[in-house]
Structure formats: C-alpha cells, structure tokens
Amino acid sequence: MSRPYHHGDLHRALLQAAWELLDEGGVDAVTLRAVARRAGVSHAAPTHHFGGKGGLLAAMVVQGYEALTGELQNAWDTSMLAEGSRDPLLALIAVGRAYVGFARRRPHAFTILGRPELRNPREDIFHGEVEAAAERCLLVLERGVVVCQEAGAIDPGPPQPWALLAWTGAHGLAVMLTEGLIDLGEDDPSEDQLTMMMLLALRHGLQSRR
C-alpha cells in the first residue's frame, strides 16, 4: 500500500530512494519503477516529479554537486582557519584532497557528476539547475585561487584557468582511483599518500615564480 506524502516530502522521498538504489547497484539500478517501489508510491510518481529518468538523474546530480560543494568549502574554511593567510595554497591542496575523498567515499555519486551523457536533454527539466550547481562548485576553487593571487602565491590574471588546472588534476586522480586504474601494491604509497604527492606537485605547478 502506498504511503501518503505531502508534495515536498514525496520529492525528497523519491530522491532518497534513488540515492539508496544508486549506492547499492550503480546507475543501472536507478529506474523509475525501482524508485517508486522503494519509496512505496505509484509507478507514475517519479515521472510526475522528474519527467523521466533523465530528469531524475539530473536532480540527483544537483544534489551531488551541492554535497560536494559543501565538502570543498568546508575543507577550504577549515584549512584557512588553521593556516591563516601564511600559505593559502595549502588550503587549495586541502580542497583537492576533499575532492578525491568525496570520490572515494561516494564513487557512484561521483560517477554521475562526471557523466552528463547519462542525462537525456529531452527529459532534463533540471538542466539549468545542474549547470548552476556545477558552477557553484567551481567557484569554491576560483575564490581560492583569487585569495592565493592576492597573497602572491599564484600569478595574477583570470582565476578560472588556474581553477580548472587544479580541478582537472584532482579529478583525473579521483577517476583513476575510483575506476581501479591505479593498482597499488604493498610497497606502493597508500591512496592518501599518493593523493598528497600529486596535490603537492600540483601546488608546485600553481605556485608563482615571480
């Protein structure tokens, strides 16, 4: 028997069900029927709220970016509080570490953030929200770059190219670790050690030579 929900509660319940299915079985497990079944509602409910699977995945991507943005911002704030303005590049490194950490703790969520082809534009009624959520995530890095530039740690100029450099570096490592493309043996560095080595090398690349 379907459970009664208020409109907003049903929206949240459907997304919660979708996240549970994603964590349990990956993106293939997230179907409209499975979500409805998990939430205990009619099969038509997900279509009514999201327009189709593309819209459902897009709404999940928005939530995923919001969660990631919160973790990146927290990493920046915590590091800046600890380090002050002595070396803001270390705070940028902390953001990169948080990015890789998110991917390792929530691999399925990380996967849907990086695969826009999973969303059908004809169904994606949340496209504008997805783009805005992604931009807010990148802004954490861009604002961090500006702070580093103001401190003389990164060369002046538009912050976006530097932010994209930092993002692609962290993202590439996160993808390789999440998809098992790096096989670490007993004598190799741990994942966290490897992450820090890569991020410190990235810091060296970002650092101003002036």
Results as ranks from 00 to 15, higher is better:
residue 79 S to N: 05
residue 158 P to K: 12
residue 56 L to M: 12
residue 67 A to Q: 09
residue 96 G to D: 01
residue 84 G to Y: 00
residue 167 W to L: 13
residue 175 V to T: 08
residue 58 A to I: 06
residue 150 E to F: 05
residue 64 G to D: 03
residue 181 L to C: 07
residue 185 G to R: 14
residue 103 A to F: 09
residue 190 S to N: 12
residue 77 D to Q: 13
residue 161 P to I: 05
residue 192 D to Y: 06
residue 163 A to Q: 10
residue 108 H to C: 15
residue 132 A to Y: 05
residue 120 N to H: 07
residue 129 E to L: 07
residue 86 R to Q: 15
residue 115 R to G: 05
residue 135 E to F: 09
residue 121 P to A: 11
residue 119 R to V: 15
residue 189 P to F: 13
residue 166 A to M: 14
residue 81 L to H: 13
residue 168 T to A: 13
residue 68 L to N: 03
residue 57 L to C: 08
residue 110 F to K: 04
residue 144 G to N: 01
residue 64 G to F: 06
residue 62 V to R: 00
residue 102 F to Y: 15
residue 88 P to N: 10
residue 93 I to G: 11
residue 186 E to C: 00
residue 122 R to G: 15
residue 99 Y to P: 10
residue 182 I to E: 08
residue 117 E to S: 07
residue 122 R to C: 04
residue 141 L to T: 01
residue 62 V to W: 00
residue 77 D to I: 10
residue 67 A to S: 13
residue 121 P to L: 08
residue 93 I to K: 14
residue 187 D to C: 03
residue 113 L to G: 04
residue 181 L to F: 06
residue 153 A to V: 03
residue 111 T to R: 14
residue 187 D to Y: 08
residue 182 I to M: 14
residue 158 P to D: 13
residue 57 L to N: 00
residue 67 A to I: 07
residue 84 G to S: 09
residue 149 Q to V: 05
